[in-house]
Design a protein around this nucleic acid. Structure first.
Lengths: 118, 118
DNA sequence: ACTTGATCTGGAGTTGCTCCAGGACGCTAC
DNA sequence: GTAGCGTCCTGGAGCAACTCCAGATCAAGT
């Protein structure tokens, strides 16, 4: 399928997909006779995963390292698993940041409520 | 107190504090006779709030708007409350993103476990 | 007097996009 | 058959939010 559909299905923008490919985050993107990119279902899955990793703050360096492992095939599965485990740890930290911020907002909102006498 | 202590207490870096001040996010920073910045306890509180907002992805534009309201005093409390309520909504969205990513990671990790036969 | 440590300023560099100009196809419609 | 769409391409500029650095100042300790 073409890039617009890949963007729709992955939630990444067309520009971001091209940028990621250029940056080595998306291996094995072939071209049609028209010179346009063609995305396989596996590559779409990969883009979906990248979108999720990016939305949760994985740096591009780490995504590139992960992509290089992915491109090398099954021998790298342990390393890839470790990457995902590490990211899962980061998610927990972000979780705590969100909770902490939510608590602070509640506190501030309470102060505003008092000041407004409501 | 001075900038290094402000950095320690707020969790922002010294560079970020200077950058935020230059960008209009930190009103009313006075200077000592030595020309160095002096931070009041209120300003520290403000930096702590900024740090939390930034850690949870509030754009600088929004932080600047919020800072301008803050600088204008109590008449803007309703508007400021609205800003915080809006951000609390964003936190919920980020929460969902995190949960979604965690679920996806679990799924991928399950696949890896199967491939490794463990 | 001299080194150390903290601060200052202005500006360059980095990351991760995002947008745009200019150009090439292919399709429908006149 | 050519005019106008829509989608794609490339290379490069622009932007947000830092981050780092060079070069200068100045107070305090030895």
């Amino acid at each position: 399928m073409k890039i617009s559909e890949a963007a729709r299905k992955s939630g990444l923008s067309i520009d971001t997909i091209r940028f990621y490919e250029k940056s080595g985050l998306v291996p094995h993107v072939s071209r049609g006779v028209d010179g346009h990119r063609r995305f396989s279902p596996d590559t779409i899955d990969w883009l979906v995963l990248l979108a999720s990793l990016r939305a949760t703050g994985m740096p591009m360096r780490a995504m590139r390292a992960f992509a290089e492992l992915y491109a090398q095939g099954d021998a790298t599965i342990r390393a890839r698993r470790q990457t995902l485990l590490d990211h899962a740890e980061r998610l927990k930290t972000m979780q705590r940041d969100l909770d902490h911020c939510a608590a602070l907002l509640d506190k501030k909102l309470g102060i505003y409520r008092d000041m407004l006498g409501e």
